[in-house]
Design a binder for these strands. Sequence first.
DNA 1: TTTTCTTTGTGTAAAATTTACGCATTGAAA
DNA 2: TTTCAATGCGTAAATTTTACACAAAGAAAA
Lengths: 254, 254
Amino acid sequence: MEHNLRDYFEKTLKEVAIDCVIFGFHAGELKVLLLKWKGTDGWSLPGGHILLDESANDAANRILMERTGLGEIFLQQYYTFGAVNRYTHYSEAELLEKLEITFGKGFFEGIIFRRTVSIGYFALVEFDQVSPAPDWFTDECRWWNLADVPALLFDHNEMIERALTALRQHIRNQPVGYNLLPEKFTMPELQRLYETILDRQFDRRNFQKLLMSYDILEKLDEKRVGVANKSPFLYRFDKLKYERAMETGVAFSM
Amino acid sequence: MEHNLRDYFEKTLKEVAIDCVIFGFHAGELKVLLLKWKGTDGWSLPGGHILLDESANDAANRILMERTGLGEIFLQQYYTFGAVNRYTHYSEAELLEKLEITFGKGFFEGIIFRRTVSIGYFALVEFDQVSPAPDWFTDECRWWNLADVPALLFDHNEMIERALTALRQHIRNQPVGYNLLPEKFTMPELQRLYETILDRQFDRRNFQKLLMSYDILEKLDEKRVGVANKSPFLYRFDKLKYERAMETGVAFSM
DNA sequence: TTTTCTTTGTGTAAAATTTACGCATTGAAA
DNA sequence: TTTCAATGCGTAAATTTTACACAAAGAAAA
């Protein structure tokens, strides 16, 4: 294992990292996937390094796949973090110390703990499709409600903040939902997604009118049953039309 | 010189480059600043590397300063280019060959020609304030009309394209002009700037109404004299209000 | 000197978009 | 069987955006 690790890092760019803010949506809450580092109480975003024969975008996709099992997912670069000191919470020395207890003295020397810039990506994934998987480096991988995210390692809190800003910018020009919601969903569910991301309320009649005007939704003949009160219709995204709307753009003007 | 160069690169991140798309505006045309590499007919964007004790943003500002003499200028990161092979126009081998003729065999070994990702920044500067300055590496530095930009080294044509896209996105939410126009300017000049960036025409009455609604412009008692036909009023940006508008954002809705 | 002609300065009406809101219907829960 | 919160659908008001006309300035032409 240790040997493989060294091999891996020999094949990567050392001064460049990739970190992914993976957003999910469940029970009306926006969530991010975080990893807990072995031997510490420190959490971080899933990240990694770029293989020498791999583009940054491919690397981000690989990392997303490793952590969630999902490919072909909406994934977008949003900012590159290039501060001189990106350690918060723990200093570099403190973190190193803790990790050496778990992984052995000198194990990380020259591998991770040098100055790196990190390219931030955010991804939108379908909550139910993800089986969060820790790796050799971490002993836990799970969803956190955005509001409950603790103080993270490095500058990862800032990364999440900026990713959310980028997502909010994104949702104003592109449709959102294809990767965040299950295949079939109701209009109130879609509305709640938008309301959660933008942290405000919309009039449901105007919301429906606007979203339908994008011509990306297919209204099904089914209704969600067993739910309280009047059962709402189910909708599904028309994949082709959705993709076309991603290219041409839409104006979420509410 | 050669020794200083090596010293410099010893103090920088080697796998990360910074490239700046520096936009200027003159005579109704949008321009970018390009450098011609010694011993080649290849042009590129001004760029450089990050010093070990310097943030990426500081590095971009330093590069901008080195090339234009300007500081405190609007400068924004817009994308990080991470393709495996970023050589176009010339291949890595061809470029190396040409440069070795000028700079001597082996001079660049291990310094520049390894795989790097590049963080792209775009800057908006006041054309008249800039005295383009080539460096030891280049023998010419000058403005190019955006439409006339030739095939550039590396992926720099793509960088300019994406920078323009980012600028067009930017202008929809933030006021533009403070750094691109001289201190005093006329409303038609400001309008031409917007028209050039967005590559479309606006009704001058609606344009004036909208821009004045931002409450960032100060109408002066002077007029531009000596110009053909009716002399237009001069305006100037209110720096404080302009900066406030940059923070709160504006909606350029035309 | 006078006339011409392009450019600028200003205001108002029409069109389109966005927002506000009413009421009937459904179906689980009381 | 009744209640009641949530859903489905449509219309009016408010706001924003777009379209457009005419007078005035001043350099250039006659």
